[in-house]
Amino acid sequence: MSKLEFGPMPDAQGYFGEYGGQIIPPELQAVMNDIDKAYEEIRQMPEFQDELKTLFADYIGRPSALFHARRLSEKLGGAQIFLKREDLNHTGAHKVNHCLGEALLAKYMGKTKVIAETGAGQHGVALATACALVGIPCEIHMGQVDIEKEHPNVVKMKILGCTLIPVTRGTATLKDAVDSAFEEYLKDPQNYIYAIGSVVGPHPFPKMVRDFQSVIGEEAREQFLSRFGKLPDYLTACVGGGCNSIGLFTAFLNDEDVQMVGVEPAGKGLDTDQHSATLTLGKPGQIHGMKCYVLETEDGEPMPVHSIASGLDYPGVGPQHSYLKDLGRVQYATATDQECLDAYMMLSRVEGIIPALESSHAVAWAIRTAPTLSKDKTILINISGRGDKDADYVAELLKL
């Protein structure tokens, strides 16, 4: 199979091509460089890797299953659809992969508090879980709109012992939660650590989160080769900040024959201002300490964005995704709220698997695409989380 070659991602300054970096005050750059240095040292420690590997297996339940969605494939005709079942992880999503890594890193660094933001609540639940396991206090900032949409996850976070901070400013969603959490972190960056919930923010966070999430693609690659003697033809995953998708894509980047598609929220339509299609309609800019594609207003401010999926309504995106878009290595598509809802219900009723609304964007792309491909082609979807958290919200929308 044909191979591609890439340079370092990121480079020594934390850039993926022209994207990434540390667009932050010099004093904060020093703190970030300390985290980077500690991360590079600690990740090489056999005891850190052994503890993480054991927790991945015995606590999260890795490797996650690779499932052939035969009934969905038959219903759609065309390509065979496979699912990487991150929804079966402890806490119900991929987020626990990097949260365990970040909590362990905080413990090894001697930090006294872990701070984070959450959108759909999956990152918040996963981090609260990891901090309970490691024994470090945890503070989660969450937009009030998302608190109301994601009640089950809010309850779980409280049960797990985290301090939940409601954010009512701005649109009261993910971007505002990031702002609020970062402000709290800046009060004592020597003793606190900000456990960013995706492959975003200043260097080294896009690299660190990617590294912890890359287990998804490493497993999928090995599973597919072992069972079929070949790699999938297409990979697809939803993209908000982009950690579940970069986790799947990383192991396949050098495989030229594997096509990769990240699916962004088209919301109520790309012709409206109610979407979060950052890579599709945004342009290079700056947000939250990094350079990446950004959706901006005419005044150059981050645009208020929308998605039916709380975990995807972010006006920026991971710098590595921005770079991979420019290189043409990954294609970026969109799915509307309605397509997402339809995919959520179809996978639930045809395969008995209720996907998160976030993951349903990738399912929607596969539903659209599979019938256009021949039956010898394969599509692997990353089911990044389970849809229990969305069930009441979907039931209300669909009047079930």
Rank of each mutant, 00 (worst) to 15 (best):
M1F: 06
M1G: 15
K3T: 14
E5L: 14
F6H: 09
P10H: 01
G21T: 05
I23M: 15
I24S: 15
P26D: 10
N33H: 09
I35P: 10
D36H: 15
K37G: 09
E41R: 13
T54L: 05
Y59K: 15
Y59C: 10
F67I: 13
R70Q: 09
R71F: 01
R71D: 05
L72H: 08
I81Y: 09
F82V: 00
H94P: 01
K95V: 05
V96Y: 07
V96M: 10
N97R: 00
H98V: 04
H98T: 01
C99A: 00
E102W: 06
A103Q: 03
K111H: 02
K111F: 06
T112Q: 04
T112P: 12
K113Y: 08
G119Y: 10
V125E: 02
L127Y: 03
L127E: 06
T129Y: 08
A130F: 15
Q144C: 14
E148V: 12
I159F: 12
R169K: 13
R169W: 09
A177M: 15
F182N: 05
F182R: 02
E183I: 15
E184P: 08
L186Y: 02
L186Q: 08
I193V: 15
A195I: 08
A195R: 01
G201E: 05
K207T: 05
K207Y: 04
D211I: 08
Q213D: 02
Q213A: 09
A220L: 11
A220D: 07
R221S: 15
S226G: 13
F228A: 10
F228L: 10
G229R: 12
P232F: 00
Y234G: 06
T236F: 07
V239F: 02
G240W: 06
G241H: 02
G242R: 11
G242P: 08
G242C: 13
N244T: 06
N254S: 14
E256Y: 06
E256H: 11
E256P: 11
G267H: 08
L270T: 14
D271P: 15
L279K: 01
T280C: 04
L281T: 07
K283Y: 11
I287K: 08
K291V: 10
Y293D: 07
L295G: 12
E296T: 15
P302K: 01
M303Q: 12
P304M: 01
S307C: 04
S307Q: 03
S307T: 00
I308D: 07
S322Y: 11
L324R: 00
Q331K: 13
Y332K: 00
Y332E: 00
A333G: 00
A333P: 05
C340K: 07
M346W: 00
M346L: 11
L347N: 05
L347I: 14
S348N: 01
S348K: 05
V350R: 05
E351K: 08
I353D: 08
I353T: 07
I354L: 15
P355V: 09
A356G: 07
E358I: 02
A362E: 00
A362D: 05
W365T: 03
P371D: 04
S384F: 11
R386V: 09
R386Q: 06
K389I: 07
D390N: 06
V394Q: 14
A395P: 03
